[in-house]
Amino acid sequence: MNDVNKAMAVFHSHIGGKLLNVVPMLLLFSLGFVLGMTSDSKFPNFYLSSVASSPSPAPLPPQNPQVGLARFLEPPSVMHNMTDEELLWLASMTPKVRSTPYHRAPKVAFLFLARGDLPLRPLWEKFFAGHEGLYSIYVHTDPSYTGSPPEDSVFYGRMIPSQKTMWGDMSLVAAERRLLANALLDLSNERFVMLSESCIPLYDFPTVHAVLTGSNTSFVDSFVNHDSEVRYNPFFADRSNITLAQWRKGAQWFEMDRALAREVVSDDTYFPAFREYCAAQPSCLMDEHYIPTLLSLIGWRHNANRTLTYADWRIGEVHPQTYGRDDVTEDLIRKIRGGAGSGRNCTYNDGANGTCYLFARKFAHDALEPLFRLAPKVMGFG
């Protein structure tokens, strides 16, 4: 019995004591398991706070959604923070594959070069009404302009990042290139129309869209004008090898296709020379020479050498005739549509066509009311 007592004493001293230490741990573990089966509201506060402070496991990375071609072709926002250099570089890109793997209606980009408000905006809104998806609008205003069309207007949110312009200066050409570049970012834009705040449409939208998208040429004034040779300077020959024989003149209000628009925005050979010249020559009037001369320099053949925007220069001033409220009549609009005073051949795709002009300028602010009244009867919209 003494031996048994000794064995029990050894068990208690070496093993029994350790079991007593383990028992509380087992009880705590059991308590935690039971509490885990209940709601979080029954957890002790100290336990919940320790859980909340512990780092959560990293979430699994989300699966990248598939982005198809349709998403890629969505028109980009007109607001961005690109510099002109970045914008022109991006807009100059073109796919090498000639055929397109998608089908979309060709759009006409309407580029408005304005000081601020568009006083004839209600007339243009009637013109665009019901033809969504067939046009894009881009507006370049003075950077100081803080106004905005109403939210229900097609012009709302269409002002691009702009810079200051001056009459007769190369800053106007820079604004034209800026408008073209923004419009080129929308791959559905196939034709590009430069307009001012004093321009009006002479026909309804379907007619304008059909004439422009159906043409195999651009419509840019680019002609030899001996009276304008006084504006040529040997500086151009020294700076960029532009000769007098290559010198051209024309109205800045153009209608061009996508291929020519890319040529204009990607020109980094001749544009710097014009800009440098105008920096030392206030009112250099190069807005009438840069694009017409560029077409001559690059040998552009797909051009009708005429504009589709009418202006009456017969008064012999530095600005064309301005039409006010009392000037706007049915007879005036019909004469302009018929090519009054153009003195040019209004052929279309190498064939006879009666459409000499699609747009006209300059119309004053107070001409809106009679224009609005004549639009349904004469222009075919409204």
Rank of each mutant, 00 (worst) to 15 (best):
T322D: 03
R248S: 07
P59G: 07
E85S: 12
S222K: 11
K377E: 13
V139A: 01
L374R: 07
D40C: 11
A181F: 03
A91D: 00
H302N: 13
A105C: 03
H209W: 13
I242P: 00
N5R: 14
F128N: 00
Q66N: 06
R325F: 14
S53K: 07
A109K: 03
A237N: 12
L35E: 09
R258P: 00
S153E: 11
T165E: 06
G380R: 08
T293A: 03
S50A: 15
W124L: 10
V22P: 02
D3T: 13
K164W: 04
T322Q: 13
S188T: 10
V193C: 04
M194G: 06
A259L: 09
F381P: 02
V108C: 07
D169R: 05
A352F: 09
S144P: 02
L73I: 08
S153T: 10
I315R: 11
M1S: 13
K42A: 12
T100P: 00
L35D: 00
E125L: 05
V264C: 02
L285F: 09
R71D: 12
P376C: 02
F192R: 06
E288I: 07
Y138E: 03
A129Y: 12
K164E: 09
L244S: 05
D327P: 04
D117Q: 12
Y156F: 15
L120T: 05
P55G: 01
S283H: 14
M82C: 05
N345H: 12
A114G: 07
S215A: 15
P282Y: 10
L244V: 12
L358C: 05
A91S: 11
D350A: 13
V97S: 11
P234L: 01
C356A: 10
W124S: 00
A364Y: 01
L260R: 10
L195C: 03
K362I: 04
N64H: 01
T213C: 10
F381M: 03
L60H: 02
D331W: 07
D40F: 04
L88V: 01
L374D: 04
G341E: 08
P161N: 01
A279S: 15
D221M: 11
L120W: 03
L111W: 00
P62A: 04
F223K: 09
P61F: 09
N216H: 11
M194V: 15
F274V: 12
S54L: 08
E229N: 13
V328S: 02
N64D: 13
T83A: 01
R314Q: 09
R325Q: 14
L212I: 05
G324D: 05
M159Y: 09
M379K: 01
V10Y: 10
G380L: 06
N349L: 09
A70R: 11
L260I: 11
F381T: 04
Y135A: 10
